[in-house]
């Protein structure tokens, strides 16, 4: 590359004043990449109550932290983020910008790319440096294929899938330059108005951080099937997810959806119950350490990605499993 852009800038999302795991995972990736191509790791966080955020981001790998602590950034709103973020990227001149492939990241990154007149690779699983350039690997064709792409213009933008990277062990002895930036946002320039926001209060263990996730599909036979899954999840401090087909039928809340157009999980154990194993679903759980599946069809595709398989009726197997776990815990 003939330009002088270098290093990696990571946009870290903050929730309740804490950086989300995906942000910390991206910092680890940024450290590895700057180790190969040189340059520094800049972490950028927008939000409110960011008093300790700088230290946290430093411990997880940032060399420089830019905090935009402002009431306006309490809730994500792409149009509010864009002017400041574009300005920061133009000033820092990174070779690569990492953004989480999250609800907000997928809304933000393409806009940012076009505003900066550069390109974005969405949903990346890994990035390597070849001849000084980022080669980004992303899933396409509904998870059936992978493409490795590069861009001719810099900076390259990439959104990174949750759990595709592992955060570093925090090192409290690291030091970094922590700076507060002031916002240039003109609120009158925001053209989209949020008139109402209705989020379900999350109860129990979050899917992304659970050690055990139990996913239910059409093979559960109906919404009652999810009751048993919830019971088991509670016994093992796990979380319940679902296939899109089950969500579409309102057998469970939509927030349960795992997959290409849903959430990404990578627990120690994923139990897929009555799920056929479509690539679109596996795109959200394929990185789980162990997959166990329960399916009445011995030829179900899901068994090809499963370490253990149970051929049987979910309505018999799952209540029995709940019972056996209860016995073991007694």
């Amino acid at each position: 590359m003939t330009d002088n852009k270098s290093g990696v800038l990571v946009v870290v999302e903050v929730e309740d004043s804490q950086p989300i795991d995906l942000g910390l995972e991206m910092l680890a990736l940024a450290r590895r990449l700057t180790g190969i191509m040189g340059g520094t790791v800049t972490a950028v966080a927008f939000g409110t109550g960011l008093e300790t955020t700088g230290e946290t981001l430093t411990a997880y790998g940032a060399d420089q932290v830019l905090l935009n602590d402002n009431e306006i950034f309490t809730n994500f709103h792409a149009e509010a983020w864009l002017p400041d973020l574009s300005k920061i990227i133009t000033e820092v001149e990174p070779a690569l910008v990492l953004i989480g492939h999250s609800e907000s990241g997928t809304d933000l990154a393409p806009r940012l790319a076009f505003r900066l007149d550069v390109d974005v690779a969405t949903g990346c699983e890994s990035i390597d440096i070849v001849n000084g350039r980022p080669h980004m690997t992303r899933s396409c064709f509904g998870g059936l294929a992978r493409e490795v792409i590069t861009f001719t213009k810099t900076p390259a933008l990439a959104t990174i899938r949750s759990k595709s990277q592992q955060a570093l062990v925090p090192d409290m002895k690291r030091s970094a330059e922590i700076k507060h930036v002031s916002s240039i946002l003109d609120v009158n320039a925001i053209r989209t108005r949020v008139v109402n926001r209705d989020r379900e209060k999350a109860v129990g263990v979050q899917m992304e951080s659970a050690k055990v996730v139990i996913g239910g599909g059409l093979g559960l036979g109906g919404p009652e099937g999810f009751k048993t899954l919830n019971e088991i999840a509670e016994l093992v401090d796990g979380a319940v997810g679902a296939s899109r087909a089950a969500c579409d039928l309102d057998w469970c809340p939509r927030s349960y959806q795992i997959g290409l157009s849903g959430r990404t999980v990578a627990p120690e154990l994923y139990i897929a119950v009555g799920i056929s194993g479509a690539s679109h679903h596996m795109a959200g759980c394929g990185n789980s350490k162990t997959i166990v599946s329960v399916n009445s069809d011995p030829k179900a595709e899901i068994f090809k990605s499963s370490r253990f398989g149970i051929v049987g009726n979910s309505q018999e197997i799952m209540p029995a499993l709940a019972e056996e776990i209860r016995k073991l815990k007694a």
Binding site: D119, V130, H135, C140, L144, A145, R146, E147, V148, I149, T150, F151, T152, K153, G286, F303, K304, S305, S306, R307, F308, G309, I310, V311
Partner: peptide, 21 residues
């Protein structure tokens, strides 16, 4: 285009499934 496709492939991740009977 400002995009280069370096590689396109089908990932192989089939693992041996042990059936519990």
């Amino acid at each position: 285009t400002r995009y280069e496709l370096e590689r396109l492939y089908i990932p192989v991740n089939e693992i041996e499934c042990e059936f519990i009977s």
